[in-house]
Every structure is written in structure tokens, then in C-alpha cells.
């Protein structure tokens, strides 16, 4: 009956051709439940069989902030600004840095860590790094809550935080968080694609992220760095994470200054990284199983 129909209407084609961007959004949408379940898996299995359980979400940033305050502010006497408690300053930096670095390291081993699943069943591969970004967003939310608690404590129960005032620009905070996520995701996807063939990069990620933290104004204000080491200040200044963390501290604590150009700079770098990562990731996902 439908001879013409049967020879024409192919639902889809499996072929070696690689388009630069071959994202099937409809397909990703169809697998949204998988994204949700991956996030759920990450969250519920992370602290299984630990005594402190989700308390670890709080412990890590708090202890890091305490150590940073002791070393960088008390010992090395890095100023954090009049009327801003050093602890709060560090906590702000660490909270936002943590989200970025968790996205980066979490997605940078997508292919190697999931080759078991990827080798056996097909689903849009991009779901996996996306799930990392979302489950870390949840963690970030909890850490942000901790930050807010300490914020309230310092502002209302001590007199050390006289200058810590949230700015109206805080309305941009969700966008800023999205930038962090996109930047980490794009960076991570690029690395994950390249590590399928060349494992060298996976060694780099471990300490590279740590080094990058020192170059991202997490425990010092950019202005202080400029003042002390002006010849290398551009290195830190053009690091998009510096801009993002400085903006985060401006929005929440009112330190430093806000400029639309900085915001746009951070945004465009993040989006470019994300797109580049996505293209490379897409190119890799078809055949990585042969080279991994």
C-alpha cells in the first residue's frame, strides 16, 4: 500500500558524518528524566555510609575558610577591606570557587569514568556532564545557605561587618552562577574529550585546578594583587574566574566595583568556552569508545 512511504520516511540515520554542532535538543528533552535520576543518584550516593553524611557539604568550605583566614589574613595580613570580616570574605570566595571547580573536575573525566555505561548503551552523552553541573548546583545552594547564615551572624550579632552590604546588582546573581556553571562545564567537556585519547590532561586537571585557584583572587582582592605585584596583575585580571568571584563578592558583600563590561566579559568567555566544549564533546562522543 505505502510503497513510497516505506522507502522514504526514515526516522533517523546512523552515519559517520559529523556536523560541527549536532545537538538534538528534542532527544535531550526526551531524556530529561535520566538527567534528573543522575542528579538524584549523585546526591544520594555521595555520602552513603558516612557518619556525618550531608554535613560534609558544610565542613569542607568552613574549614577551608578558617585556614585561609588564619594563613592569608592573620599571618600574611592580606587586607579584605574595612568592615568586612576576613572569614566572610574567604567564605564568599571559596563558595563560588568550589562550584566552578566541582563542575570542572566533575565533568573533566566524563568519558573515562563512564566508559562502562557509554560502551553499552546509547543516550545523549551530554546528559552526564549536565547532571554533574546540576548536582553541584544543589551542593552550591547548600553552601550558599551556610554563607548566608554566617552573613546574618556577622551583620546582626557582631559589629565587624559594618560595611558588608548586599548591592542591588545581586539581582544578577543567578546569571553569574550560570556563568560559573557554563564555564566549568565547557572547560570540563573539552578536557574530557581530549583525555579519551591523551591521558596527559587528566594529570594536569588535578593540580591545575589548585594552581588556578591561586590565580583567581579567591583569598585576596584583585585590587591588592594589582598594588603588590603590578607586573603580573594582568594574569589574574584576565582570568574570567577572577572577574566572576570579584563580582560575586561585590554583589553579596559590596567590595570592589561593578562594571557591566566585566560582567559581559565573564559572560562571553563562559559562553564561548561552553560552545567550544560542546562542539568538541559532540565530535568525540561518536567514536570515543574506540580510542578510550
Amino acid at each position: 500500500m505505502s510503497k513510497a512511504k516505506t522507502s522514504q520516511d526514515w526516522l533517523y540515520t546512523i552515519s559517520p558524518k559529523k556536523k560541527a554542532i549536532d545537538l538534538n535538543f528534542k532527544e535531550i528533552w526526551r531524556y530529561r528524566d535520566l538527567l534528573f535520576l543522575f542528579v538524584k543518584r549523585d546526591v544520594i550516593t555521595q555520602y552513603k555510609q558516612t557518619i556525618l553524611g550531608p554535613l560534609w557539604y558544610f565542613i569542607q568550605p568552613l574549614f577551608t575558610s578558617v585556614i585561609f583566614t588564619l594563613i592569608f589574613n592573620n599571618l600574611a595580613a592580606i587586607p579584605t577591606g574595612e568592615g568586612i570580616p576576613a572569614f566572610l570574605f574567604n567564605l564568599a570566595g571559596i563558595t563560588s570557587w568550589n562550584y566552578f571547580s566541582a563542575c570542572l573536575t566533575g565533568t573533566s573525566n566524563t568519558f573515562t569514568a563512564n566508559q562502562g555505561i557509554f560502551g553499552k548503551v546509547y543516550f545523549p552523552r551530554v546528559i552526564t556532564p549536565l547532571s554533574v553541573v546540576f548536582s553541584n548546583l544543589l551542593k552550591f545552594g547548600i553552601q550558599l545557605l551556610v554563607f548566608i547564615c554566617f552573613y546574618i551572624y556577622f551583620v546582626f550579632f557582631t559589629d565587624k561587618a559594618s560595611n558588608a552590604v548586599p548591592q542591588i546588582a545581586i539581582l544578577y546573581l543567578p546569571i553569574l552562577i550560570a556563568f560559573m556553571g557554563l564555564f566549568g562545564l565547557g572547560f570540563g567537556m573539552t578536557i574530557s574529550s581530549m583525555t579519551t585519547k591523551y591521558r596527559d590532561l587528566s594529570f594536569l586537571v588535578g593540580f591545575g585546578v589548585q594552581l588556578l585557584m591561586y590565580g583567581s583572587a579567591v583569598m585576596y582582592p584583585l585590587s591588592y594583587f594589582k598594588e603588590k605585584v603590578p607586573e603580573y596583575a594582568w594574569l589574574v585580571e584576565y582570568n574570567p574566574m577572577t572577574t566572576i568571584i570579584e563580582l560575586f563578592r561585590y554583589m553579596t558583600l559590596g567590595i570592589g566595583e561593578f562594571s557591566l563590561s566585566k560582567f559581559l566579559y565573564a559572560g562571553s568567555v563562559s559562553i564561548v568556552f561552553f560552545l567550544v566544549g560542546l562542539i568538541i564533546f559532540n565530535k568525540t562522543e561518536k567514536t570515543f569508545i574506540d580510542t578510550v
Binding site: 540515520t13 552515519s15 559517520p16 560502551g119 561518536k286
Partner: peptide, 9 residues
Amino acid sequence: VTGPTTGEI
């Protein structure tokens, strides 16, 4: 899971 080198399905 992996793509063909040539041809299509």
C-alpha cells in the same frame, strides 16, 4: 555506541 567508519544505517 560507536559510529561506523563509512556507510549508514
